[in-house]
Simulated assay, not measured.
Amino acid sequence: MAPGGLLPHSPALTYLAQIIQLAVAPVFLLAGLGAFLNVCTGRLARIVDRARTMEPDLLASRGKEHDRLIAEMHILDRRIGIVNAAIFATVLAALIISAVVVLLFAGFLSGYRFGTLIALLFIAAMISTATGFGIFLFETRMATRTMRVRTYVLEHQADED
């Protein structure tokens, strides 16, 4: 024992502390991706709710109103697919980042050098994250382009009592 009853610092313990420090950044990234996934799933839920709310109106409609509702339903269906793609890319990034953390510790425990693999996986995770964000940006732009308030609603005036 070292003076004062403390254990001496071993090289392995110091190296483990460095590995833990290296693993903290990807873990914070995982937390951020979790928050982003929460946003995506909330958006997906709102889109699905809107589609379900529209179904009875669509089935009861005729003429131009039916055509308008069908067009909106097609857009909602496409947006559902786009948000699902953003979720997929983001979950893939989270899985890859998890593999990076596992490899950091596996390398410490086994003595194998996974540096190149870890770097490549981290690059893949960043590409997947950027892809998820890009897809999400595309979906939000699509939503704002297609979901405008109709002119007759904006110009509607209440009847005088």
Rank of each mutant, 00 (worst) to 15 (best):
T53L: 13
A12D: 02
L137E: 05
S10C: 00
L7N: 00
P11I: 04
L7I: 00
G4K: 05
K64I: 14
S10V: 02
Q21E: 15
F88S: 09
Y112A: 10
R50D: 12
G81N: 12
F136T: 05
V153S: 05
A45L: 15
M73S: 03
L7P: 00
R148N: 13
T90H: 06
V91L: 12
Y15A: 07
L109H: 00
T144W: 15
A86Y: 05
F136N: 07
P3Y: 00
E155M: 11
A130I: 14
A17T: 14
S61W: 06
L6A: 01
V39D: 02
V102L: 15
E160Q: 14
A23L: 06
F36T: 13
I70Q: 14
F108W: 06
I47K: 06
T131F: 12
C40Y: 06
M73G: 02
A2N: 02
E160F: 10
V153R: 11
R46Q: 15
A106Y: 04
A94R: 07
V39M: 04
T140Y: 15
D161T: 05
I97M: 02
I123F: 07
R79E: 09
N84L: 01
C40H: 01
I19M: 12
D67T: 12
E160V: 11
A94H: 04
A85W: 02
A35N: 07
L121P: 03
I80D: 00
T116N: 02
F136C: 13
R43K: 15
G115I: 01
V101K: 05
R79C: 08
L29F: 11
L103G: 03
N84A: 03
F105Y: 04
F133H: 10
A60E: 15
A106K: 09
D57H: 08
I20K: 07
A158E: 13
G34S: 13
F36Q: 12
L137K: 09
L58M: 11
L30R: 12
L29A: 12
L44V: 14
T140E: 15
L103Y: 04
